[in-house]
């Protein structure tokens, strides 16, 4: 599988990273190089192998249902580029 300029632009768009045409162009061989190299994994026989789900055997713990957090609006908003009236502000979204 080799990717073209259009694919690079699509990936950039999915990643929400704006790229110029020149940047996208430069990424085509770069990404192809890397993806071509990782594709060697396809040759590994994985018949009957389950994908790894936990790195070290461990079980998912569950929390008790108790309110132990929140009510820290100042902390939540402290680093916001734009916060107004207790909200984060973003450019107007039209739904």
């Amino acid at each position: 599988m080799s990717i073209d300029l259009q694919t690079v632009k699509k990936i950039a768009s999915l990643s929400r990273i704006s790229v110029s045409d020149a940047e996208a162009q430069a990424m085509v061989p770069e990404l192809n190089n890397i993806l071509g190299w990782v594709e060697q994994l396809g040759e590994v026989d994985v018949t009957g192998v389950q994908p790894m789900t936990a790195v070290i055997p461990n079980h998912q713990r569950l929390r008790e249902d108790a309110v132990t957090d929140g009510d820290v609006r100042d902390k939540v908003l402290a680093n916001a580029p734009q916060a107004e009236h207790g909200f984060f502000a973003v450019p107007k979204v039209i739904e």
């Binding site: 108790a66 132990t68 957090d69 929140g70 820290v72 609006r73 939540v76």
Partner: peptide
């Protein structure tokens, strides 16, 4: 009482961003 993955409260109608954990 608390959210799916955090200990913040779920009650309806609270002041904005007051039932938010990090």
């Amino acid at each position: 009482k608390a959210k799916l993955f955090s200990g913040a409260a779920t009650a309806f109608g609270a002041e904005p961003n007051t039932q938010v954990s990090l």
